[in-house]
């Protein structure tokens, strides 16, 4: 076809350039290849490997996972930690974000709250072991106030992991929620107030529908993080019992029994559950209003 090109007809290079493909576009290639090699390829490799078990047919790993209560029960355990933690973080974030957005000087608060996110769950877990331990400041305070007679067990159980997910997760959820509510045009609320809507009516009929879409995304991002919880489930939880989450099962398969194939299957099951929850939440989101929430802020 190129051989029969008329003299007027632009060359291949020019035709590609018109479609946006030229030397500059090629600059995206090194990064794209790196992500293909380090993210997409291992993922596909893991998926294939999960169907090549050490023993048995292609589905043997999945049959083993769902047939062994020690393995499949990690799913309800993980959901039982991740869903309450995510819902609590969102329920706490929304009222705080709605107040903070009216503040002129948010910077100090946002800076304080970014600290636990930056330090990460390992450090938070070590801090919680000291602070919530039987001789820690919290138990001492509660005993000094005569609210309890003897130290309450707050770590090395379900609650320890939940606290750690709130300490590290609330700031994350809050900062995301704040960026969404800051994008809502204040004039919409003023208009509702002019028409006689009280604070609660304004929240229910104006703010909540406008925030729903952002909250759905916030829920997904926070949930996915909480679902993959690992260090705090080991350090402040009961990793052999009530907080044996799915990450622990995957880690043990890979590094304690050296069964790469089973470990890959568990990683794929994790990914599938995360995907299902995200799709469900985002599908539910379309029941709410979706459209511009404010003046031009993208």
């Amino acid at each position: 076809m190129t051989g029969a090109a008329l003299p007027r007809r632009p060359g291949l290079r020019e035709r590609l350039a018109r479609r946006g493909l030229d030397g500059t576009t090629l600059l995206v290639l090194p990064a794209a290849l790196a992500i293909l090699a380090l993210f997409v390829f291992p993922f596909i490799e893991g998926l294939v490997l999960s169907f090549l078990p050490k023993q048995g047919g292609p589905l043997a790993n999945y049959a083993k996972f769902f047939g062994d209560p020690y393995l499949w029960k990690t799913i309800p355990t993980t959901l039982g930690i991740a869903i309450p933690a995510t819902l609590a973080n969102i329920a706490l974030s929304v009222p705080v974000a709605l107040r903070v957005r009216r503040m002129k000087r948010q910077r100090l608060l946002t800076t304080i709250l970014v600290i636990p996110i930056t330090l990460g769950t390992v450090l938070v877990a070590e801090g919680l072991l000291n602070y919530l331990g039987p001789q820690g400041w919290l138990n001492r305070t509660l005993m000094a106030l005569h609210l309890i007679d003897r130290p309450v067990r707050l770590v090395h159980n379900y609650w320890g992991v939940l606290w750690s997910l709130v300490i590290a997760g609330f700031p994350f959820t809050f900062l995301l929620t704040l960026s969404y509510v800051s994008g809502i045009d204040p004039n919409l609320e003023r208009a509702a107030a002019t028409l006689g809507a009280g604070p609660r009516a304004r929240f229910r009929t104006v703010l909540l529908p406008l925030m729903a879409s952002g909250l759905a995304i916030t829920f997904c991002l926070s949930f996915v993080q909480a679902f993959a919880v690992y260090p705090s489930a080991v350090l402040v939880g009961a990793p052999a019992g009530s907080t044996r989450v799915i990450s622990i099962a995957a880690f043990q398969a890979a590094y304690e029994t050296y069964d790469d194939s089973l470990a890959s299957s568990i990683a794929m099951i994790m990914a599938a559950i995360q995907l299902v929850i995200v799709v469900l939440v985002l599908a539910g989101r379309s029941l709410f209003y979706r459209g511009p929430a404010g003046g031009g802020k993208g």
Binding site: L38, F39, P42, G46, A228, S247, A254, S264
Partner: peptide
């Protein structure tokens, strides 16, 4: 890669 938690991609990546 920003949406998938590191624990999920980490295990297949470490295998490779």
């Amino acid at each position: 890669p920003l949406l998938v938690p590191p624990m999920t991609i980490g295990i297949p990546l470490a295998t490779v």
